[in-house]
Simulated scan of single mutants.
Amino acid sequence: MDVLLHFFVALHIIGIASLLGGFLTQMKAMSAGTARFGPAMLHGALLMLITGMILVGINEAQGHALNHIKIGIKLAILVVILGIVYVKRDEEKAEKGLFAAVGALTTLNVFLAVLWV
């Protein structure tokens, strides 16, 4: 079961890398006003959502104590990120504020995951 857990943790990290990497690679374009939400950002957010739910399920099945408040807050942040990226995915240009919000919320989610024990 530990191998399965670690496999989904790795997929979760790949999703974070895809979402945050898509943001970071377009920071220069964001300052020029030409950034857009690419498919990698959408797929990364979806991968984070799916693997996050699987990780919660695996940990619950193993009887581990989980911080449901932390999980709920991280889920709410991810749903906001996913909603923004999904709705704005076909637009040629993303507003600077929304694009920056996705990057900030993604970074916040990473810090919540690592620092909130």
Rank of each mutant, 00 (worst) to 15 (best):
M1Q: 12
D2Q: 08
D2E: 12
D2N: 11
L4V: 11
L5E: 13
L5H: 12
F7E: 06
F7L: 15
F8G: 07
F8S: 07
V9Y: 14
H12T: 05
I13G: 05
I14N: 11
G15D: 07
G15L: 06
I16A: 14
A17N: 05
S18V: 02
S18Q: 05
L19P: 13
Q26T: 05
M27G: 01
K28N: 05
K28A: 07
A29F: 00
A29L: 10
M30Y: 01
S31Q: 13
A32K: 13
G33I: 06
G33L: 07
G33Y: 06
T34S: 14
T34A: 11
A35K: 03
R36W: 13
F37T: 11
A40F: 13
A40D: 14
M41E: 11
M41H: 10
M41F: 11
H43Q: 11
G44C: 05
L47P: 12
L49Y: 11
L49D: 10
G52C: 07
I54R: 07
I54P: 04
L55D: 13
I58K: 08
N59A: 13
N59L: 13
E60Q: 11
A61Y: 08
Q62R: 15
G63N: 03
H64Y: 14
H68L: 15
H68K: 13
I69Q: 00
I71H: 03
G72F: 00
K74C: 00
L75S: 13
A76V: 11
A76N: 03
A76P: 05
I77A: 08
L78M: 02
V79L: 15
V80F: 04
V80R: 05
L82N: 02
L82T: 14
V85A: 02
V87H: 08
V87S: 06
R89M: 09
R89F: 06
R89A: 06
E91V: 03
E91K: 10
E92L: 12
E92Y: 04
E92S: 10
E92F: 04
K93E: 10
A94D: 01
E95A: 09
L98E: 09
L98A: 09
F99I: 02
F99M: 04
F99G: 02
G103T: 01
G103A: 06
G103K: 02
A104T: 00
A104M: 08
A104H: 00
A104W: 00
T107R: 00
N109H: 09
V110A: 10
V110S: 01
F111W: 04
V114R: 00
V117Y: 10
V117Q: 11
V117N: 08
